[in-house]
């Protein structure tokens, strides 16, 4: 068997990469990709911890199923909100939201 710490280190690096993407990037779609990478790291850690702690094996797997289902819901809602942001500010830039009227001068 692989030691538990290998999985935890992998999940730790994935969470770090995702937080870096969410904090440093300006493009909204890349921020969303960072959030999904955090979700993947968390599910790997949860399934590994549940497997190595045998009374909670199926608790961890069931909770992972629910996490994946809710990740689908929040991605759909985030995408629609991003569409609305694009409609209102004319860009997907988080750095400087500008009203569309100021760009086009209407």
């Amino acid at each position: 068997m692989i030691p538990l710490s290998w999985y935890l280190v992998l999940a730790f690096i994935l969470i770090g990469l995702g937080v870096y993407g969410m904090m440093v990037k300006r493009n909204l779609i890349r921020v969303l990709i960072g959030a999904e990478i955090i979700g993947n790291g968390v599910t790997i850690a949860l399934v590994a911890l549940a497997l190595y702690n045998s009374p909670f094996t199926f608790t961890g797997q069931g909770l992972t199923i629910i996490i994946i289902a809710i990740a689908a819901a929040h991605t759909a809602l985030a995408m629609v909100l991003m569409l609305m942001y694009h409609r209102r500010y004319g860009t997907v830039d988080l750095g400087q939201p500008v009203r569309q009227e100021e760009i086009t001068g209407v």
């Binding site: 199923i65 994946i68 289902a69 689908a72 819901a73 991605t75 759909a76 995408m79 629609v80």
Partner: peptide
């Protein structure tokens, strides 16, 4: 696409 995603989750459960 959102409808597809929702039916995907339903199918998985």
């Amino acid at each position: 696409t959102i409808l597809f995603l929702v039916v995907d989750v339903l199918g998985a459960f």
